[in-house]
Design a protein around this nucleic acid. Sequence first.
DNA 1: TTCTAGATTGGACATGTGTCCAGTCAGGTG
DNA 2: CACCTGACTGGACACATGTCCAATCTAGAA
Lengths: 188, 188
Amino acid sequence: MSTSPRQGLGSKRAETVERLFAAGLEELDEVGHGALTIRSVASRAGVSPATAYTYFASKNHLFAELFWRYLAEDADHDPQGADAVARVQDVTRRMAERLAASPALAAAVTPALLSSDADVARLRLRIGGEFLDRFARALGEQADPAVLEALVLAFSGALLQAGMGVMTYTDMGERLDAVVAAILEGHA
Amino acid sequence: MSTSPRQGLGSKRAETVERLFAAGLEELDEVGHGALTIRSVASRAGVSPATAYTYFASKNHLFAELFWRYLAEDADHDPQGADAVARVQDVTRRMAERLAASPALAAAVTPALLSSDADVARLRLRIGGEFLDRFARALGEQADPAVLEALVLAFSGALLQAGMGVMTYTDMGERLDAVVAAILEGHA
DNA sequence: TTCTAGATTGGACATGTGTCCAGTCAGGTG
DNA sequence: CACCTGACTGGACACATGTCCAATCTAGAA
């Protein structure tokens, strides 16, 4: 039995996974997602590659987990603003700012989420659900489902384009302001 | 000097590249983009891997070229419809139908276009430009730039979600009808 | 202290990826 | 005909990826 009161949290496994996450972020910033390998992350975290692979099925899985955690840090925030337009813009601006603050992670996660890897597929759904929730909350109760879907799709599209380098994450915030306004126009 | 009047078109190189494209499509349908390798495509086309690599820098480059050609087949079509909404829906429906008809190619191209490969980056811009053109033509002259961008982003987002398997390409057509209507509402 | 279960490890393995290069081949040229 | 040139080829290379397993370590339980 574990001696720790909080089940599992203080376990050896939990400590190791934390070290791997931290090493992953550092490695991402320093060498980018192209050059990063699970082995390099393992080495930075001071564990063997075999150990790292017991935690992450693949490089893509690692990126997806890192992104999910990054997203979750911000999950409790309630969108601010007087009307739906302002609240939705608060959501997109906030996301864009956070992504701009971690460009390496943002660049890594876009291709990673497309992986057919089973662990990635699970996280992908969670992440998609989180986006949907945020927009739904910003819109309020009686929102037009087509409008909600338009927002989610436009946001996904912006993520994709930024991920491909067609626009920067800083641009993304501003451009989405206009796009959100255009979509919501006539949908009081 | 070449004996062929149409410069290069009848050259050996052009014939080989055609065979490689054809083999690539067959291989995609039969084994999917995961299992496909440049070597397997080369073998199917009856050329050596080394030869195939003189035409395509990577698997992703092959997918991007295949998709670009598939897109170009349809480039001259003028969007039909009385008003902007109908014309834009014609564009999205048409694309969705074509993608649904070649699911393996569609599944392959989404991750491929995210590659940092230089040849892919070139095609990515061309493909993005093509989408923009089609929506711009469907909207007509004096379109709101924010609306145009909203449409392109929503469409990109739909491609991404379908590419991830969150929706089918058949769904995509129907869902985009509603999304397009919602975006254009109030933008006569 | 001894035992035990879970965590970690080294290292080999099979596979894929893209590069490179010296050599061959075929068809048009002079 | 002999010659060239562009296309193609075989095969080796360096590297990354993810898997596997028997051996070892370590901290808490008895």
